[in-house]
Each structure stands twice: as structure tokens, then as C-alpha cells.
Design a protein around this nucleic acid. Structure first.
Lengths: 238, 238
DNA sequence: CCCTCGATGTTACCCGTGGTAACACCCTCG
DNA sequence: CGAGGGTGTTACCACGGGTAACATCGAGGG
């Protein structure tokens, strides 16, 4: 067919990849994941299967043979990257520090993790970009694991009285979401060094918002007529 | 033609819809939005344009004439629903209450808002499900507006010293993300009544996690062999 | 030596979805 | 009676996920 060297993207250099132990038993799979990784790093999530296949120097069906479907591929890809961050956070949560120091340590660990791999970080937070099925909550699986880890740590380390279980569960999610949103903003705007951000978040958790002095109410209280409570309850749909 | 009554989904009852003022000047548009609303409520985001068109009893091109493209439709749809929630939160933020009461009020307003329309709530938090372009941050536009509103309120009402701007910006995002994640979890599991959840979140912001007594470190420090620090840093790319 | 087996690879196709072009209808206004 | 604008339609295209069917090649085993 003489197609030997047609338009295969940037293939034929899958050798010096080097991956973890898993490569020893499933080398091809790892190579494909590495290719996918490159494409995602370049095109973000939502990269097409065709693009990934081309980058790997092959065609779609092989990808599907190895990963079943697109979400399978992305799940595998995500898990590779999740492991490190999750383990790091877990370790930080287990360290025997004074509470404030420990919280700062965990916050710093997370921020450092997402700082190190900004592109991939999108994968962890938006795994389902591109496949509309199963929207499933705000927290991606990776984040949900972190939330559970926090819950576990709080349950084990802090005395919250009879409502402990409820509080630690709620707080696990709350803290995760808080760090997620704040970290996302920080990563995008870089308004301050990491340590400063850690302080800001720890301060929030330490009730600094609650404790701070109030400012005097400004003189003109209602300058703009905001069109009172327009459709506050929206379409009642008769 | 004789196509009069072929396969048009559930059309010909667009009359008793009842919508806001905007319907007076752009009635067709409102009807289409109502149809889209129904479909999204039923199929979640990621509903296809065809499905929406069919539900409205028409075909795709008309949708595109009115909204340009898919994201235009969803943006219009989102704005309709955002208005109420945003206005409510804004009002709650402007109320002259004691700080703790005000925070509780805002939290309760938000939770009540998402509680009232769980299906649509997905729209606000996952507007880009189905269109992989422009992933753009964790916080959807609607949430970003809320975050800015919180930032504004904190800036105006709380004395945070020289770092005020940074802190209020960071905290605006952080609090929004916190309530988003916690609210999402609460909405899905309903582990407690709303008022309880409000308390839990306010307590967190009030530093209860920081202030609570520690639990004695459990006797057996390493009961489960957790497979020590597997691939802590993941792919080191040897 | 041949022949099966499994992994690797390909071409060609299906279907659904976003998006568009071109044409038809009707109703109103000058 | 036209012109124009809103409403509607039938195709059609490109592209992305996913699959069937066929081709190849190396390793064993009778």
C-alpha cells in the first residue's frame, strides 16, 4: 500500500518514555497512555481519540482495544496522575503536627501539586469535559478521594462531639471545594506566592473572617435602584 | 406535505407557559427557552439541539437563528435561572445583620436556591458539559459572579488590614467553592436538614475546626498495611 | 514444515451531533 | 399588489465516538 510514511503525526519515538513499574507487564498500554498524556497536555481535555491515536502513530481501534472507550482511556490516564497527589495529601494528613501547621502543610501540599502540573490538573478537575454522560457532582473522582481523606483525618484527630460524623463529612467536602476553587483561581492569576495563599486559606479556616473588626457602614446605603427582586423565583411553570 | 402530525415530540402546547417580562417583547424566544428548559430538566445538560428542537415542535435551524449556537442557547437559559439566585444572594449580602447571622443567611439563601431546582442547578455549575471548548476554570460564570459578590461584600464590610484586597478575593472564591462542593454533596445525600447544614458551614468558617479539642492519637498507629507510599510522585520519567 | 494463536495493525464504515445553505410560507405594511 | 420579516422546512457537511472485518507478523507446538 506504500503508506509507510504518510501523515502519522509525531510517531516512532516511543522508546525513551520510561514509566513506572506497570510498564513492565503492559508496555504497549503505557506507551499509549504516554501518547495520550502528550496530547492532553497540548490540547487539554477534550482531545479527540483520533488525535491521540495519531500521536501514538496508530489508529483508533487499537486505543479502543486497550481501553474500551474514551472514558476508559481518560480514567486510566487520570489514575496515573492522581496517585501522586493523593498520596502526598494523605501523607500530609497523617503527619503528627500541631493543627495549624498540619493544615498549612496539607494546603501547601495540594497547591504545590497542582502547581507542578497545571495542564494535567485540568484532567483531575474536569475529567468529563467532552463526554456529557454522567455529570456526577462537582467534585471529580480524584477530588472526592481527597475529600474522603480529609473526612477520615478530621474524624480521627478532632473531637467534635456527637455531631462529629456529620460535621467531618460536610467539612471534608467543604474544605476540598474551598481549596479547589481558591487553588484554581490562584493558579490562573498568581496573585501571590504560594505560602501567602496557604496563609490566606488557613486564616479563613481559623475564623479570621468571623473575628475581624467590622468596617463602618458606608454613608450612601442604597444608591442604585436594583429593580427589586425581579424574577427571584423564576418560572413557576404554572 | 401532510406532515402535520408526524413525530413532533410533545409540541403544540406552548401557550400556558407564563414567563417574565421579557416574554412581552420576544415571545418566540421565550417559548423556545421554555422548551429547552423542559428538555434540560429531563435529560440534564448535554441535551442535544435536536431534542430541544423536537420538544419545541420545530427543527434545529430555528434554534440557531435565535441563539447563534449551542452555547448561546445555554447561556441564555442559564442567565434566566441565574438571575434569581444571584439577586437573592446579593440581597442577603446587603442585609444589615450581625456577621454570623448574615453569613448564615447567605448560606441558607444559596442552599435554598439550589434545593428548589436541583436539575437546573446542574446547568449553573456545569454549563459546559457537552462542549469541550474553553474549559475555563472550576467556577462556572454564575458561580464566579457569586464569588465576586462575596468579595465585594467582604471588602466593604470587614476590616482586614493592608492585605484586605488579596484576602477578600481569595476568600470570595474559597467560600464559593466551599459552599458549592458542600451544597452539591448535601443535595445529593440529604444527610441533614438545611438549617443544620447552614450551621455546619458557618461553624467551619467560624474556626470550629481550629478550636476543637484534639482526640488522643489512637493506640495502634499503623494497623492496616497500606502498601507503603506506592508511587508517591507517580511518573518520575526515569 | 506448517499451522494455529494472539497481539498488532489497517481500512472502511455507522450513527449521532453541532452547524449551515437554500428554499417555502404566511402575514403585514406601504 | 408587491416587499420584507418572521417562521418553518429539507437537505446537507464535518467531525467525533465506536465497531466490524480483514491483514500481518512472530512465537510455539504437532
Amino acid at each position: 500500500m506504500a503508506v509507510n510514511e504518510s501523515g502519522r503525526g509525531s510517531a516512532e519515538r516511543e522508546n525513551e518514555e520510561g514509566a513506572g513499574v506497570t510498564a513492565l507487564e503492559e508496555p504497549r498500554r503505557e506507551q499509549l497512555l504516554n501518547a495520550a498524556d502528550r496530547v492532553v497536555r497540548r490540547d487539554g481535555p477534550g482531545a479527540s481519540m483520533n488525535a491521540i491515536a495519531t500521536e501514538a502513530g496508530i489508529t483508533k481501534p487499537i486505543l479502543y482495544r486497550h481501553f474500551g472507550d474514551r472514558s476508559g482511556l481518560f480514567q486510566a490516564l487520570t489514575e496515573r496522575h492522581t496517585a501522586g497527589l493523593l498520596a502526598a495529601v494523605r501523607a500530609a494528613l497523617a503527619e503528627p503536627l500541631e493543627r495549624r501547621e498540619q493544615v498549612e502543610h496539607v494546603l501547601d501540599t495540594y497547591l504545590a501539586g497542582i502547581e507542578a502540573r497545571p495542564q494535567v490538573y485540568q484532567l483531575l478537575t474536569h475529567p468529563e469535559a467532552g463526554d456529557p454522560n454522567g455529570v456526577g457532582g462537582v467534585l471529580a473522582p480524584a477530588l472526592r478521594q481527597i475529600a474522603e481523606e480529609i473526612t477520615r483525618a478530621v474524624t480521627a484527630q478532632v473531637d467534635l462531639g456527637p455531631d462529629g460524623p456529620l460535621l467531618s463529612e460536610a467539612w471534608g467536602r467543604a474544605i476540598t471545594g474551598m481549596v479547589l476553587a481558591a487553588g484554581d483561581w490562584w493558579l490562573e492569576n498568581r496573585p501571590c506566592p504560594r505560602a501567602r495563599m496557604v496563609q490566606a486559606l488557613a486564616d479563613l479556616l481559623w475564623g479570621r473572617l468571623a473575628a475581624a473588626a467590622p468596617l463602618p457602614t458606608p454613608p450612601a446605603p442604597a444608591p442604585e435602584p436594583v429593580e427589586p427582586a425581579n424574577t427571584l423565583d423564576g418560572q413557576a411553570d404554572s
